[in-house]
């Protein structure tokens, strides 16, 4: 091949305008002929491409590929077999949960879980008032204890305004620190 033709083809190659045949011509030139000095820097590129294209798949490639595909298909089948069973189990569990909740709701709204002790309202009234009296006394005791605590606190003569002002200062300081941190982060 003439040097002028090579120059022309190389120009087209760098502009990405060469066809596959033209690229093969270039590869052939750089692999077969003694390369002139001015092309020595580009020769390795075409030699590399030429050599890489020579690489061919081994005879056992198809066999190996098919074997791998079969292995993957086998795995997929096992998952497929379990998936419907899991779905059914999930559905059963969901229905059971719904039934339990539904039953509970019906029972809680309509029925009570115990038998009435008395048929006579007066006898039941006596027990109910005793229970409520006990609860009432407990609540009163708690109210009384709370009031006594408040009275004791009042007797301590604590300067609440001073404590409030301390709290406010702490709050202000915290806010200032937060603002500074935010400004530092922005910077």
């Amino acid at each position: 091949m003439e040097i002028e033709q090579i120059d022309k083809l190389l120009g087209k190659y760098w502009n990405c305008e060469t066809s596959l045949e033209e690229e093969q011509l270039l590869q052939q030139f750089f692999s077969e002929n003694v390369v002139p000095d001015n092309y020595k820097n580009v020769a390795p590129l075409f030699l590399y491409t030429h050599n890489e294209q020579k690489e061919k798949l081994s005879d056992s490639f198809d066999e190996k590929l098919n074997q791998k595909i079969e292995e993957r298909q086998k795995k997929y089948i096992t998952i497929k077999l379990f998936a419907p069973a899991l779905k059914i189990a999930a559905m059963v569990a969901f229905i059971l949960a719904l039934s339990f909740s539904g039953l509970f709701w019906i029972n809680s709204t309509k029925k009570q879980h115990f038998a009435e002790t008395y048929n006579d309202p007066l006898a039941a009234y006596k027990e109910a008032t005793l229970a409520l009296d006990k609860l009432s006394l407990a609540l009163q005791k708690s109210e009384k204890a709370s009031l006594e605590t408040l009275v004791q606190l009042n007797e301590l003569n604590v300067d609440w305004d001073f404590i409030d002002s301390l709290n406010m200062e702490i709050y202000k300081n915290e806010e200032e620190i937060e603002l500074k941190e935010e400004q530092n982060l922005k910077l």
């Binding site: 009570q112 115990f114 038998a115 009435e116 002790t117 008395y118 309202p121 007066l122 039941a124 009234y125 027990e127 109910a128």
Partner: peptide
């Protein structure tokens, strides 16, 4: 154990 249910409470409320 003494149990007083809703219906009995209603009767007691009426009385």
């Amino acid at each position: 154990n003494v149990n007083i249910g809703r219906s009995m409470l209603e009767k007691m409320a009426n009385q």
